[in-house]
Write a protein that binds this DNA or RNA. Sequence first.
DNA 1: GCCAACGTTGGC
DNA 2: GCCAACGTTGGC
Length: 145
Amino acid sequence: MRYWLFKSEPDAWSWDQQVAKGDVGEEWSGVRNYQARNFMREMALGDLGFFYHSQTDKAVVGIVEVIATSHPDSTSDDPRWDCVDVKAVEVLPRPVTLDAIKAREDLAKMVLVRNSRLSVQPVTAEEWAIICAMGGVESGSDGVS
DNA sequence: GCCAACGTTGGC
DNA sequence: GCCAACGTTGGC
């Protein structure tokens, strides 16, 4: 079981829209970057990810779960592009801002900090636990089914 | 709205 | 296969 981070502009696809989809979830479509696509191809059912709002928010706002492994992106005719499906699992009681993340020594190596442009990225178990704690998520690394 | 960083494209 | 040009992303 691995951890990830999905980045979205709230204007394009917001956490609220994700929540509104419920357990049906939604394709994480529109990724046109090989690195990001390759990470999605590595994802397994039940993997968890942070939902990050870029631009106006710049904060981790929720947790999603992978509910379909990599498949062709329905929004592209180009067979190169795949994506997974995710569903909203839990909102962060307190969103964790980019500023707060950057302020922490133990999160300095996060991809979010180091390569801000990558839209789908891996998160270590340590980083996951720290951000869950910062966000006020009780369950942390387990039990969010 | 600007600009830096980065990825992709296309000419050679 | 290199590299310049260009487009896009995202923080500020």
